Amino acid sequence: MAPILDRIDEEILKDTKDKLCSDFGIPEIRPFQEEAGIHILRGRHTILDVPTGGGKTLALWFALYYHIISAKRLGTQSKAAVIVISPLVALMTAQAKALNERGIRAVALTSQIKDLVGEFKRVANGDYRVVLLGPEMQDNSDFKNIVLQSKPFLDNLIQFSVDEAHCISEWGPDFRPTYGRLIELIRRLPNTVPQLIVSATLPKDVMDDVRLKLHLGDDFRVISVSNRKPNVALSVRTLQHAQDSFADLVSLFPATSPESLPQTIIYVNSRTIAERMQDFLRAHAPPNLSSKAIRFYHRYLSDEEKAEIERDLRSGILRIVIATDALGMVRLMSVPYVCV
C-alpha cells in the first residue's frame, strides 16, 4: 500500500518544486499548490477551491512528483499512481498529452481509445503514473474487473482526485448521474487513499454537498484562494433591438480588416440558439470575413468537431465562437472578449 508520510523530506520537497517549475515553465510554486500536495502526502483529504487559471491543475501532480523524485534518489523508479476524474474528453486528453510530453506516463481512458481493454491491462500493470477518466468509467465492467481488482495498481495508488468537482453537485442529480455515484468507485479503493477535490466553483452550499456525496467526514482540509481577477473587466450593454433578433451582435464586427476583430466567445443557453446565432452572424458578417471564422460549439458535436474548433481557436483561425457551457471547462488560449 502506498505510504502515508509522517515526515516530509525538505530536500526532496525542494527538488519537487524545482522539477515542477522546470517541467511546466513557471517561476515558482504557489503556496496553495505546495500545501495541497503536502496534505495528500500525509494522507489528508483536501478540498482545493482555486479560481480558473490560478494553477489548481499543478496541485494535482505535486504529491506524484514528490514520490517520483524520492524513488529516484533511491535509484529506483516510482510506481506511484494518481486517478483523476474529469468531465470532458478534451480536458483529459490535453492533460495526458501535457504530462507525457514531460516524461510522466499518463493515459486518458476515453471512448476514443480503440483497445480500451488493452489500456486497462496496462493501467493494472502499473505502466501509468496518471490515469484520467470520466465518472461513467466506473460502470465499465472491464474497468472494474481489470483495474479495480489489480493489487499492484491499488497498492501504489497515492491519490484519488476529482477535477471540476462542482459537477458532482450540479450534474450528479440528473445530467450525469454517475457523478452522484462516485462514492461507489471510492469504496473500491483502499481506504487510506486521500482525495484531492478541485474546483473553481465551490460556494459553501456546493462544497457541503460535495463533501457529503464523497463521504469526506469531518477530517479534511479546505484551501481557498480568492477569485479576484484584476485583469478582467465587466461591462453591461443595453440591448437596442429585440433579444431574439441578434441584431445587437452586428456591432462586434470591425469597420476595418477581419484581423482587427478580437477573438470572441458568446455564451448562450441552448444549442438551438448557438446554431441560429452562427447563421445570423455569418449572414451579416463583412464580405472580407470568411464564414469559417464563425462557428458554434455545444455538447452534441462529435469529439472530432470539438477538437477542430478548439484547435482553430488556439491558432487564431476562428474569430467568433457561439458556445454553450460545454466549452466552459476546456483550456484554451486567452480570449479577450466573452459575451453572455
Rank of each mutant, 00 (worst) to 15 (best):
I322F: 07
L157A: 03
A36T: 09
E136C: 09
K121S: 11
S86P: 06
N227Y: 12
L48E: 02
Y65N: 02
L20W: 00
R331Q: 15
V147I: 10
A63K: 03
A285S: 14
Q159P: 04
E275R: 13
V131G: 02
G54L: 07
M1G: 14
R299T: 11
L249N: 07
G53Q: 09
L214K: 06
P27C: 06
F160R: 00
L99R: 02
P230H: 11
D218T: 13
T110H: 08
T201Y: 08
E275G: 04
Q95G: 05
E259P: 01
F62R: 02
S22F: 08
T256R: 12
G172W: 08
Y300P: 00
I197P: 03
A326D: 02
V89I: 15
V50D: 01
M1Y: 10
S169M: 02
H298M: 06
A59E: 03
P177A: 11
F153C: 06
Q77F: 11
I317K: 15
T46N: 05
F120Q: 01
T110F: 08
D163V: 06
P254N: 12
H284N: 15
K144P: 00
Q112G: 12
S291K: 14
R276K: 15
G172A: 10
R319M: 08
D219L: 10
V107S: 07
A63M: 04
